[in-house]
Design a binder for these strands. Structure first.
Lengths: 395, 395
DNA sequence: CTTACATTTGAAAGCGCTTACAGACCGCTC
DNA sequence: GAGCGGTCTGTAAGCGCTTTCAAATGTAAG
C-alpha cells in the first residue's frame, strides 16, 4: 500500500509546474501538445490518480450525488420487502443517470434508530441530495434544502427550494378505474382507500373519483371504504361489502351459494368491482371474495396499485398499476444535475406516468399456469402519447 | 443556497480557536465542558456542517467505501435481470455494514462501454474498494490493489493484496447432490456443467464430484454434460440424455410412453437425477423432460443452483441452492473495514455458506398452488453448526 | 526591429479542515 | 516561592489540489 503519488511528483517528473499538470489531467485547453504528452507520460508512469478530496476542496465540487432512502427496521415484513425492491430500482436509475453526467452516487439508508449525524455526514460529502419518501425529518430537510440542491422523491412534503419528483398516483388510479368502467362495464365500483393521512392514498382516491365522474357514475359514502393498506383490511372490506348483502354470515367455501349475476347484484347494490389503494388490500379482498364464493373477475373485478411481486403470483393474477421506479431515480438525478450545472433556479415538480399492468383479476387475461406463468404480462401505457408529464412551477 | 459556514465562522462566534471547534465537533477529549457548550451552541446556531472534502484532505481518510459492480448492457435478458437482483442484495448488505462502521457507500456500475476514467474517479474518492465479479479489468485491478485496500467479491482472480469473498459454490453443489443421493436415492446422477472456463461452474462441478464419491458413485464422462448455462442448453441436455434411451425421436406430450420405473432406467443407464450448474439449465431440462413424458421428480429428480426468481414459479418448483447475497456484501465491507482500521495486513479469503432451498423438483415438497404459492419454501442450512466458514491465508 | 497580441507557462494564494507542538494556566508539593 | 505535572487552548504548518494573475514566449504586422 504505497503512498500515492501527488501532483507534485508528476510535475517534477514531467519537468513542468503543478498548474500545467492540473490542466492536462483535466483536459483543459491552453497547453501545447508537446508539454501535454510529457505530462501524460509521467501520469502513466507513476500511475497518478488525483486525490478526490483535494480536488473537491479546491474546486468546491465533489462530483457526487447523495441518495438517502429508508431502510426498514423489519426486513421480514411484506411491506418491508416491497419497499426494498422499490428502493433498489430507484438506486439503479439514479446510478445510471449520475454516471452519464460524470458523477457518482453515495448511498445511505436511514431508519428510526439510526444516527442523526449520518445525514449530515453524507451531506458534507456531496454536491446535492436525492431524498426518498420520508427518510429525513422535516426540520433537517429544510436545513439541507437551504444549503444545497435537494430533490424530494415521492416525498409528500412541500419544502421550499426542494424539487419534487413523484409518480402519477392520480393518473394511475384514474386509468385503472376507467379500465374497469369502460372495458369491463363496471357500474358500481368501490374504492378501498388507505388512511386519510396518507398522501399517496388520497391522491389515488382522487383519480378514482375523477374516473367515476367521467363515467357518469356517482361517488357516495358507500363507494369509499377506509382501510389501512394491509391484506387484513382488504379481507375485512370484502366481508363488510359483500357478506351481508349476499346473505352469508360465515364464509364457507363449499356451500356458499354462487353469485347470481348482474341482475341480483345491481338490484341489491352489490359492487361489481373493487379498486384498491394498494396491492395488499386488493389481494386480501380477492382472497376473501373467493372464500365468500364470489368469482374474481367473474362476479367482481379487482384492481390494485403498486405491482408488488406477489400480484403476479396470486390466482387470479392481479391487474394493477406500476410506478416507473427506475425512471423516478433517473429523473431525480437529472433534475439535480440541472440545478448543479446552474441551468435552472426555479423550483420544479415532475410527475412521471404510471403504467397499467393488465392481468387476470379485471377479466382481461385468461389465467396462465405452469412454466410460463409470471413471464408474460401485457401492459399498456396510460398516457399513450408521452412518457412523462412535467409541470413546472416558478416559486 | 447560501454559502456554507466554515469552521472559522464557528470559532469566531464561540470565541475560540478553530482547533477547539474541531475537537468539539469530532468529540475529542481535552476540552472543558464550558468551552464545548459554547462551541456546540455556535454550531447549532450557524447550522455548521464540516466540509467533507476538507476533512478528508486533512485527515487523509474519506470515510467512504467504494462498491463497483457490473451493469449489464442488456437489461432485458434473463441473466441480466438476475444479476441485477444479485447486485442489489449485495449493495444492501454492504450499505448496512458500512453504516455500522460509520462509513458511507459510493456505488458505481461499469460495463464494457463505460468510461475507463470512472473507476479512477471512484478510487480517488474512497478509502477502499469492494469490487464485484469481473467489473474491473485485471491490470487496472492490480494497480488499484497496490494503492488501496481492495476486496474482490466473487471475483475469480487472485490478485496480490486483494482480499477475497465468495459463496461456497463447491459446498453448495455438494449439498444438493448429496441430498439427491441420500434423501432421494439417486444412483445415476448427471451434472449439467457450464463452459470449462467458468470458475463458478468448475467449482460447482467439484462439489458434485465429491458428493458422488462420498456416495460411492462413480463419475465418468457420461455423468458430465457440458452446456453454457442457458435454458436452451438444459433442454438439449434432456433430449440428448433421455430421448434416445427411451426410444423417442420427437417429443410428443400426449402419446409419449410414460416411463417405466427404476427397473428399466437403471438397466439402460438412464439418469435418475440431474444436478445443474445453474437454475436456467435446470429449468430448461425440466421443461424438456416433461415434453419427453418423463415426470419430475417422479422419474427424474432435478436440482439447480442460484435460486433465481423463476425457480419458485415453475412447475414443479425447483430445488436449488441460494447464495447469501446480502451477507456477501456485508462480509466484504467488514473485511475492508478491518484493513482500513489497520487491524490486519495479511491477505484473507472468506467463503460464505450457501443454503439448500428444498422445493418440489427433488421430490421433497408437494406442489402448492394458488394464493399461497411462492410464499412458502422450507429451507435447510447446509452447514448446521456454523453460518460461515472462514479460511485465512497469510500471503 | 518594434509594437501588439495571442499562446503557453509558472508562482502563489487559497479551499476548510486536522494535528503536532507549544504556551498558558491551574493547583500541588517541597 | 520555585518547580512540577496536569489540563486546556491556540498557533501554524500542512493535506493536494484549483485558479487567478502575471510573466514568458512566440508571432504577425507595421
Amino acid at each position: 500500500m504505497r503512498r500515492r503519488t501527488t501532483i507534485y511528483g508528476v510535475a517534477e517528473m514531467a519537468g513542468v509546474s503543478v498548474a500545467t499538470v492540473s490542466r492536462v489531467v483535466r483536459g483543459l485547453p491552453g497547453v501545447s501538445e508537446r508539454t501535454a504528452a510529457a505530462v501524460r507520460a509521467a501520469v502513466a508512469q507513476l500511475e497518478y490518480v488525483p486525490s478526490g478530496s483535494a480536488q473537491s476542496l479546491a474546486s468546491r465540487r465533489t462530483g457526487v450525488i447523495g441518495l438517502i432512502f429508508p431502510d426498514l427496521d423489519d426486513p421480514t415484513s411484506d411491506s418491508g420487502h416491497e419497499t426494498l425492491l422499490y428502493c433498489d430500482e430507484v438506486i439503479r436509475g439514479a446510478e445510471r443517470a449520475a454516471r452519464l453526467s460524470g458523477r457518482a452516487i453515495l448511498i445511505a439508508a436511514t431508519h428510526r434508530s439510526s444516527d442523526p449525524a449520518l445525514v449530515s455526514s453524507v451531506a458534507a460529502k456531496v454536491d446535492g441530495l436525492v431524498i426518498l419518501a420520508r427518510s429525513v425529518a422535516g426540520p433537517e430537510l429544510r436545513t439541507l434544502a437551504s444549503q444545497m440542491p435537494v430533490v424530494l422523491l415521492a416525498g409528500r412534503r412541500s419544502i421550499p427550494n426542494a424539487d419534487l419528483v413523484s409518480a402519477d398516483n392520480e393518473g394511475g388510479c384514474h386509468t385503472i378505474t376507467s379500465h374497469l368502467i369502460k372495458d369491463h362495464g363496471c357500474r358500481n365500483l368501490v374504492f378501498l382507500a388507505g388512511p386519510p393521512d396518507s398522501p399517496d392514498g388520497t391522491t389515488r382516491m382522487a383519480g378514482f373519483k375523477r374516473a367515476m365522474a367521467e363515467g357518469g357514475l356517482e361517488v357516495t359514502q358507500s363507494n369509499i371504504w377506509r382501510g389501512n393498506f394491509t391484506e387484513a383490511a382488504g379481507r375485512r372490506a370484502a366481508y363488510e361489502l359483500f357478506a351481508k348483502k349476499i346473505g352469508l354470515r360465515n364464509a364457507d367455501h363449499s356451500t356458499a351459494s354462487r353469485s347470481s349475476g348482474d341482475n341480483l347484484k345491481s338490484k341489491m347494490g352489490i359492487p361489481d368491482g373493487l379498486v384498491a389503494g394498494n396491492d395488499q388490500m386488493a389481494i386480501g379482498a380477492t382472497t376473501a371474495l373467493s372464500e365468500l364464493g364470489l368469482a374474481v373477475p367473474g362476479d367482481v373485478a379487482v384492481g390494485g396499485f403498486d405491482d408488488i411481486q406477489l400480484s403476479r403470483l396470486v390466482t387470479p393474477s392481479l391487474t394493477t398499476v406500476r410506478q416507473p421506479m427506475r425512471d423516478l431515480g433517473k429523473q431525480s438525478v437529472e433534475m439535480l444535475v440541472e440545478r448543479l450545472s446552474g441551468a435552472r433556479s426555479t423550483r420544479k415538480v415532475a410527475t412521471l406516468a404510471t403504467q397499467l399492468v393488465v392481468r387476470a383479476s379485471c377479466g382481461c387475461e385468461i389465467e396462465q399456469s405452469g412454466l410460463s406463468q409470471g413471464r408474460l404480462s401485457r401492459s399498456l401505457n396510460n398516457t399513450p402519447d408521452s412518457h412523462r408529464r412535467l409541470s413546472e412551477l416558478s416559486q
